[in-house]
Design a protein around this nucleic acid. Structure first.
Lengths: 189, 189
DNA sequence: GTCTATAGAACGATAGAC
DNA sequence: GTCTATCGTTCTATAGAC
């Protein structure tokens, strides 16, 4: 588990390519060219394409999860956290760095989807906690199901990426998020 | 533009494979094997893989749009249409038949995304109309932005597919839809 | 319109020198 | 730990017979 420079370069390239092209479209050759590493380095550090992708995904999830933890900072008022999550700056056309991979055939393998699922769970937890706190503060009707609402807000964001890419227009995502923000405002009391 | 039986078989196979595997993972060989057609038939009827996929996508969009038109039947009460859309039976793990393709590199080409975008627009229109009618009937606050709300409901469904596949658990989609139904109930008056 | 044969490139992975 | 050379397979597409 040494930290050779080639290994890092390979991982960096793989992370970029997974976001840009997805898993099945990313070839080990692409990774080699972008990283400047040879065939030997790649297969020395990783057992194959799948192993490399899983390592890259784990790093991506760690990076994105850290960003989410900043958004769901408990010192921020709970419903403001949710607004901040919905309003986070995003490059809608690039798609969600992790969830963009859910339609790959590889997602059926647990090791491949692990990082994606963990990342989404982190967000969902942040949303659930915020909704619960809002209830306790009396800002939200206690009869609301915070688990369902959290899943809904997360789905709006992930679905927003889908709409933007389908129309190749970032405005489509913004519109869906507008809807979610309006809903949040109505639920608040 | 004759309707040879081979052409139909090729299209049928392509529609299945696009749903099961996506575009880049679907090879002309796969289509030939599943349809029982030879190389010659495929390239006689279609100029290549992209042309075949676009024809298949157009048929898929037409089929799914017809199903949407039944759900958004104007004789049904407007907000019930939306509930019916949210509650439609879906195989969450298979993903959205059309929108599952948005993360393919090919989506950047207009001809490829056309059918996907048209299908989503049809749904969004159905939602917008239902929300407008609900406003006119006094069932919904006129201050609400029906375009934003429609985009949100559509995004919840498409995002629900993403969550289900990421966790490989259909329950994840159901939960997001539960949230949307709760929200709809609260907005109603 | 449909078939088989084949092309040339890219695929993921391995071998073995250094 | 890194390199180059190479393997066998599959890819998308074309050629040409029938």
């Amino acid at each position: 588990m040494s930290n050779g420079t080639k290994r890092d370069a390979i991982l960096r390239a793989a992370k970029e390519l997974l976001w840009e092209q997805g898993f099945s479209a990313m070839s080990p050759r692409d990774v080699m060219e972008r990283s400047g590493a040879g065939q030997g380095s790649l297969y020395h550090h990783f057992s194959g394409k799948m192993d490399l992708a899983c390592a890259a995904l784990a790093e991506m999830a760690a990076e994105e999860s850290a960003a989410m933890d900043r958004i769901f900072d408990p010192s921020v008022k709970p419903l403001v956290r949710i607004t901040n999550y919905l309003s986070r700056e995003r490059d809608a056309l690039r798609g969600c760095r992790l969830a963009r991979l859910v339609n790959e055939a590889a997602i059926e393998q647990r090791q491949f989807r692990q990082a994606v699922a963990d990342f989404l769970t982190r967000i969902e937890d942040g949303l659930v906690n915020a909704l619960r706190e809002a209830k306790m503060e009396g800002a939200l009707d206690p009869a609301l199901d915070e688990r369902a609402l959290a899943a809904m807000f997360l789905a709006v964001v992930e679905g927003g990426f889908v709409l933007a890419r389908a129309h190749w227009d970032p405005e489509r995502m913004r519109r869906a998020l507008d809807g979610a923000r309006q809903v949040l405002q109505r639920l608040e009391r």
